[in-house]
Nucleic acid binder design. Structure first.
Lengths: 225, 225
DNA sequence: ACATATTTTAAGGTTTTTTTCAGAATGATA
DNA sequence: TATCATTCTGAAAAAAACCTTAAAATATGT
């Protein structure tokens, strides 16, 4: 398990490194945003621990570059004060979890460990796709500043699509997973919900699109414009 | 099962080796393109995992040497970033599957496993013929940079032709497989679809042609010019 | 029970796919 | 070469799949 620690306070950085290495993780530590982006481009990490206050590029800038490059590595953000707006910013910017300084060591390892669970059974708070992030706890769909609430079924459909971005999700699969295998739901139900989701994604000014491949199914993609 | 890992990032290489050996595969790891070609010439592998960015010879060059030597070992390409053109290149150059870095471990093993299924029941994501490759999931037909979407029936016809490039596929077989044995479809339906396909293949500037043998059927071939 | 939010249903519109058909082109045969 | 059968192709019609929206029906919370 490879972890990147991005934290300019060297004392803290060393401490975190120590803690994680004791748990058997392999860690790289960097001390500014630009170097972090370089490292992330070069090597595959399982988790990135990212401070917000950083020289050169700050945490949010790093985050948006990373997500912008289509890299979905789980990110644990370290926010200085407990300012609510920072937490919210971190999550809307595509982080998977955040922790407010000062924090408890046990708390810290627990969060990292949660993020290293292999995907699928990963306990994530947030599911990222493109510039969108779906908060799995609150059903909020966010893109940069904006955010909308998804209804239960909208949420389930979005989760299906964004959790398996490589595969094309058929209407049948959606019906089975969202409405239930023995339901009466028709293709039109799915179509209606895809339409609802598209409207909300458009409202968020996201670059994500839900593409239809006739007779096969739906698949999310990131558009160019 | 013998697997060759061609990846110059030693950390990643070791990780992949570990993963595959845990699953019971025997792995060799090499760190540059030339050595890879040597190994492949010497020993028979069941799957080759091939990075694109490599010292001495890059992934594409290795791929074309291997295929040029008439070696058909399934190849899983690792492309950095999700640059679409790289994916397309990998597939058109004769790879059997690709994976975008960074990737999920489960995803990786699943792909390798898919490629080690004994041929015939091989689960392929892509069907190659000449300079064309047909994405079996998305119904995209690609040739170098370009790519077009095939409709359901176009796709089925193309699949029939390219999956059995040695045999001449009769109209009857096509009708049975694409339209269904009890359908009303006439020979002209087949002719129309062959025409659609030819137009799209021409649009892609491919060297593949669909040849007609009077009163018998159709067969794909690679033209000289 | 009321207001609010969610889900279902249905109808009309749009787009894509498929079929049809007629004329042109090609190939086989005498 | 003339004739006939087969195949090719483009345009248009028909069908199917999909999208969107509004309104009706349900569900949920206060």
């Amino acid at each position: 398990m490879q972890i990147l620690i991005v934290e300019d306070d060297k004392a803290l950085s060393n401490a975190l490194k120590q803690i994680l290495e004791d748990k058997g993780y392999f860690c790289d530590a960097v001390y500014d945003g630009r170097t972090a982006v370089e490292y992330i481009g070069l090597k595959r990490y399982d988790v990135i621990v990212l401070d917000i206050m950083l020289p050169v590029l700050n945490g949010f800038e790093v985050l948006s570059k990373v997500r912008g490059a289509g890299i979905g590595t789980p990110i644990l953000m370290l926010t200085a004060r407990s300012a609510v707006s920072d937490k919210v910013d971190a999550l809307t910017a595509g982080a998977d979890d955040y922790l407010t300084k000062p924090f408890d060591i046990e708390e810290f390892s627990a969060r990292v460990q949660a993020l290293t669970r292999r995907r699928g059974e990963l306990i994530m708070n947030v599911l990222n796709y493109g510039d969108l992030s779906l908060n799995l706890k609150t059903s909020e769909l966010m893109c940069r500043e904006k955010s909308v609430h998804l209804s239960y079924k909208e949420f389930k459909v979005a989760e299906m699509l964004f959790a398996n971005p490589d595969m094309i999700v058929t209407k049948e699969i959606l019906i089975n997973n969202v409405w239930g295998a023995d339901s009466e739901a028709t293709d039109n139900n799915v179509e209606a919900y895809i339409s609802f989701l598209r409207r909300k994604i458009k409202f968020l000014d996201s670059r994500v699109r839900i593409k239809n491949i006739q007779k096969i199914g739906y698949k999310p993609e990131v558009s160019d414009d």
